[in-house]
Design a protein around this nucleic acid. Sequence first.
DNA 1: CCTCTGATCTTTACACTGTCAGGATTACGG
DNA 2: CCGTAATCCTGACAGTGTAAAGATCAGAGG
Lengths: 193, 193
Amino acid sequence: MREKPYHHGDLRAALLAAAEIELTEKGVEGFSLRSVAKRAGVSHAAPAHHFGDTNGLLTALAAEGFTRFQDTLDVREIGAVDARDRAIRAGFGYLEFALARPALFRLIFSSARPDYTSPDLIAAAKRAYDHLVGLVEALGGGEADVVALWSASHGLADLIMGRKLRPMVQKSQAEQEALVREVIGRALPRRAE
Amino acid sequence: MREKPYHHGDLRAALLAAAEIELTEKGVEGFSLRSVAKRAGVSHAAPAHHFGDTNGLLTALAAEGFTRFQDTLDVREIGAVDARDRAIRAGFGYLEFALARPALFRLIFSSARPDYTSPDLIAAAKRAYDHLVGLVEALGGGEADVVALWSASHGLADLIMGRKLRPMVQKSQAEQEALVREVIGRALPRRAE
DNA sequence: CCTCTGATCTTTACACTGTCAGGATTACGG
DNA sequence: CCGTAATCCTGACAGTGTAAAGATCAGAGG
């Protein structure tokens, strides 16, 4: 019985999985590379070969997180009746992701550690941005509308996730939804109202 | 000539000043307490007596940063012609602060290190929030308008500061201003349009 | 089948970090 | 003038990231 084969087999993936657990438990600011290695049952210097340094691991994790973010929005958009409904559903998805994975959200949007010159990360971020542009164009909007929608969605999600908007937390589910719908709705290009 | 008096005199203030420099240079994630002590010309354990641990220092710094944030908004609001103009000027102030002091901005809005049960920090944050509510009430708005305005301002500032909105950075000053005015304007309660 | 080359992982080491315990210094009220 | 408490320092410890060097193994070429 091979207790511990010297070569892990798929250490890169195992490290990414362990890193995500570490991130959700300790947050970006408490993230420890050695702890990640321990989780994966491997020596503390093993990650270096796959990701370089800690920022390299966080960069890969951020790229993965970005696509995971986009997936959440995609799922939420399913069943939309029109373009406007889809944009609002995307806003809900934005908030849902921030609340479900706050540490990953902060890694992606509010951390200086990921290397934003990494092609993988750039590609993942660009996919999300292009999707957003598509949403706005389907509404006949332009660049200003992209900025408006993104700002409203991001600001709302970031503030609620960071517990700055306490008055909002203690509201009922229905009231919350109506509020989100209102805030996102204002950011959309005004046409069919 | 007293080269180094054993008692600093006003070490607490000196440490806060040094901490702010450290923060702007290294960011929240690279912040080092020992480095702060070195900047203040004091032993590495000296800060403990004034702030407890590192989070304590960052908490005090966050409280100071919050009032500094509010000050920036206040200055920007001077000379407003009406309530609507004042709200938009506040939005400009929000962005200005984020761009001028990105690390402090992130410490305040996107960090888990400050202790948000600290009375000082709570008071400083509440002052800013109450001011925002005042802005919206002067416009005849309610709670939904507070959320909308704050979300738009915060989202816009956070995204631009974090360089996620690249298409916006390379615009002219005039175009930028028009865009900000448009985004903030949408979040305001619609009455006088 | 054998060797050897490169990829993968470990061990060791070093500088740095935050925090704690204990000691030194000094301001200040009695 | 003295003692007490506040202030600051020294020393120590565990934990961190990263670099260098060695160990192990997979897979290709002979």
